[in-house]
């Protein structure tokens, strides 16, 4: 996937956005709330048609984990996880084993598969959403602030889950987040979006592999970024009155 650049809507929400993600690379896109991060992910995934710009997708197929789990309330967990397989015309017989494998990879238990989303906690619902994204074995994953609504402990466990899955399946990913700590833990590279959506202001490569990164180093990196790096000076700026 190379070279994405757009402006979008009559009011320019995003302008001159361009970046590329390499094979097997997990890239985080950070920026303050309302800077248009989610819109970029939705444009890249083809959910929104940009007003201008060009997107080249080098991957075979993608999946997405949304901010809310977006599970179908009328289907069981198994039915929800099987949905992408159904859309990809995977024969019914092979679906069951693949659903089970994806559910286990996302930390669900086999007995959870027959439950409906209303019977699950928030964390379990997000696990189901991750299992649904992993089930087709995509080579590119979009994460649109997937763990924002979860509490701190749960968030860390979900991040570990994503790190492990990325290490095992070698997919590339675009991870949208406003949490710098999360970005440092999870990704190979961090892109910083301009607070007004006017381009990518810069990028930082995080040393080492996410799977082998130690907690103190993640924490030290965050301190270094926030304390010394001018690129991250505006990351926690937030004036919700300025932008709708």
């Amino acid at each position: 996937m190379q070279g994405v650049s757009h402006s979008y809507f009559g009011r320019k929400v995003l302008d001159g956005i361009g970046f590329s993600i390499g094979e097997g690379e997990v890239v985080s896109l950070v920026g303050p709330s309302g800077s248009g991060k989610s819109t970029i992910a939705h444009i890249a995934a083809g959910l929104i048609t940009p007003r201008s710009g060009r997107i080249t997708r080098g991957y075979r197929h993608h999946a997405m984990v949304f901010q809310e789990p977006r599970l179908m309330p009328w289907a069981t967990v198994a039915g929800n996880i099987a949905f992408p397989l159904k859309m990809a015309h995977v024969p019914r017989e092979t679906r069951v084993s693949r659903v089970l494998a994806a559910a286990l990879a996302a930390g669900l238990m086999p007995e959870d598969l027959d439950k409906y989303p209303v019977e699950l906690s928030g964390g379990m619902r997000q696990r189901s959403a991750i299992a649904r994204a992993l089930v087709t074995e995509p080579d590119f994953l979009y994460f649109d602030e997937p763990f924002t609504a979860l509490d701190v402990a749960l968030k860390r466990r979900m991040q570990d889950l994503v790190i492990a899955a990325a290490a095992a399946a070698r997919f590339s990913a675009l991870f949208i987040t406003h949490d710098l700590m999360e970005a440092i833990r999870i990704s190979h590279r961090i892109l910083v979006l301009d607070p007004m959506g006017q381009g990518i202001t810069g990028e930082r490569i995080i040393a080492g592999d996410p799977a082998t990164r130690s907690e103190p180093s993640v924490f030290a990196q965050r301190e270094a970024f926030l304390g010394e790096d001018p690129l991250f000076a505006h990351i926690h700026d937030l004036d919700e009155r300025l932008r709708p």
Partner: peptide, 18 residues
């Protein structure tokens, strides 16, 4: 209807009819 579910289905390759 929940448009979020529509977007979800679109990501996983469902056209308008499906």
């Amino acid at each position: 209807r929940d448009r979020g579910l529509d977007a979800m289905a679109e990501v996983f390759g469902a056209g308008p009819i499906r």
